[in-house]
Design a protein around this nucleic acid. Sequence first.
DNA 1: TTGTAAGCGTTATCAC
DNA 2: GTGATAACGCTTACAA
Lengths: 340, 340
Amino acid sequence: MTTRRPTMDDVAVRAGVSRALVSLVMRESPRVSPARRQSVLAAAAELGYSPHAMARALASRESRVLGVLISDLHNPYFAEIVEGADAAAREAGLEVILGTGNRRAAEERRRIETLTSFRPAGLILLSPVVPAAVIEQAATVTPVVAVERTLDAPGVDTVNDDGEAGAALVVDHLVGLGHTRVVHLDGGRGAKSAIRRRGYVAAMHRHGLPPRVEPSEYTEEGGAAAVARLLAGGEPFTALVGANDLNAVGALGALEEAGLRVPADVSVAGYDNTALSRLLHVGLTTVDQPRERMGRLAVETLLERLRGTRTVPARHVLHPSLVPRRTTGRPPAPDVTAGR
Amino acid sequence: MTTRRPTMDDVAVRAGVSRALVSLVMRESPRVSPARRQSVLAAAAELGYSPHAMARALASRESRVLGVLISDLHNPYFAEIVEGADAAAREAGLEVILGTGNRRAAEERRRIETLTSFRPAGLILLSPVVPAAVIEQAATVTPVVAVERTLDAPGVDTVNDDGEAGAALVVDHLVGLGHTRVVHLDGGRGAKSAIRRRGYVAAMHRHGLPPRVEPSEYTEEGGAAAVARLLAGGEPFTALVGANDLNAVGALGALEEAGLRVPADVSVAGYDNTALSRLLHVGLTTVDQPRERMGRLAVETLLERLRGTRTVPARHVLHPSLVPRRTTGRPPAPDVTAGR
DNA sequence: TTGTAAGCGTTATCAC
DNA sequence: GTGATAACGCTTACAA
């Protein structure tokens, strides 16, 4: 079945031309006579020839491939970033190859090596978990753009969403609805959680309201547990800012179980605008990052490096937007404690 | 930043040996003196040398890479299959590179070409949407295993889960609980839907019960709409077999909205055991496919072809298992219509 | 417009 | 053990 594949020489012989001419035809050079072009194409078709990407890269000493590392295939979050990157890459004539390390540093490191061993034109790392040193190392070999990971390495460009602004968006939304007792469920050791917490705290201060952070996790269980603790503590609150959508859904479940209505009694917001938040019977108010644009931007940033248009590190920060749905509304009663 | 990368020659010069020796060291050949090996390794480290995968593949005329096409990055379903394939590939000394076509035939076709242009040792296609001819064509060039896609091409191996058995599992479970009025929400044009429907119908017949298929879709909205129609029709039913988890969740929502309790009034089951079904406040009874094993099996199947151990097409069919959760239970009242 | 020949960075086959 | 030298399949000046 898998016999020897035809090479350019085979095509050349069959078409009765030189290999160089076949090469020109394959690369769609305009300076080939239509007649020759036809016969070469015909010969190629008959033989089932298709160019050998590796040999091509080797000979031309330039790569047409873009390596993209997805930290976690389980997270559909990255799919849209890849789509954006994919589209931009195609427009630039680059082919994307993907790798994944399942959010494990050792595997991810191996994948980065695999990807770079193909001598790609560049590397885009989506939310990588490897130490900064590994990324910097890769950057000495090929342009690297880190997406959704802050990094101050001078050789590495970054594209991030503004998690601080996103958290503020939620707080503003809730305060605008009349809430004053807004609790933030913290994401713990997650990379983004510190930033989101900071945004929450700053926004609360800006509104002259006391911030209240309850430790939690980026999981459903974490959200549920945090709400259980809050309820047990007897502390009053009318709105919850979840660490992410999953966490917020956990909170939702715990509130329901406690007999509280959302948003009549308590408003809940998430973060990430995942498919989960969009579910009809969830309808979670959340924050959306411009994911596709982030993917495109990552490629564009890479191209600038490739073209030498820019040599200083790029630090792109994109603005998220609020997606109001059904889990947020006015607080249950006029809150007279405000301003005290 | 991106200066010329050191080559084997550079390392050889620095270590004061021939290029061939460096090659041997890089490939961990045992017939190199420890002293030489050390100096070569040292030189390589100092230079930051790492082998050029493409040149290597070209020269050795054998590929160490395995191309994996993921039809849809949005679907975490594939993540586990990839993990299984990944692990098996690593054990076999293969590197995995991924491609995705976003479930669009044209893109997918391009990706298959990209992947094959790297002359991989083999190709694994996860639920591909391209026409069979494209897959068969690829198979003339490199061994191909199609996963989650039935195909009778002699050159292509397949790995599938037994959707018929899976649907039967659900029916058996429900009938075992005492249900007799079990309705199947059909997945429409989805590849797997015909098989699941067949399994449902066969199982119902086996139990001497009348099958009832309501057209629907692999979406939440589809599930909700189907239930709305069913309810409006006034037809009695006590259990619903969803086309997939998303569809079942839609059904869940519509039932709740109609004031029906799950599973007290109606039992609902899904299919796929997605993260969604595992959510605490969903707790959907569903069917799980051995995804990781499917990934491993795909690689093993490929290896058989590579080693020439097998030349006839493999048709692996794996058995799914039932995951009972909270959305299924006994029917509301002893159903006296049974056996009539 | 087409052909010739010299690489590209490896591996592999031999002699030494 | 070690080191020339010829592939591998292609691109790319440079000639013709």
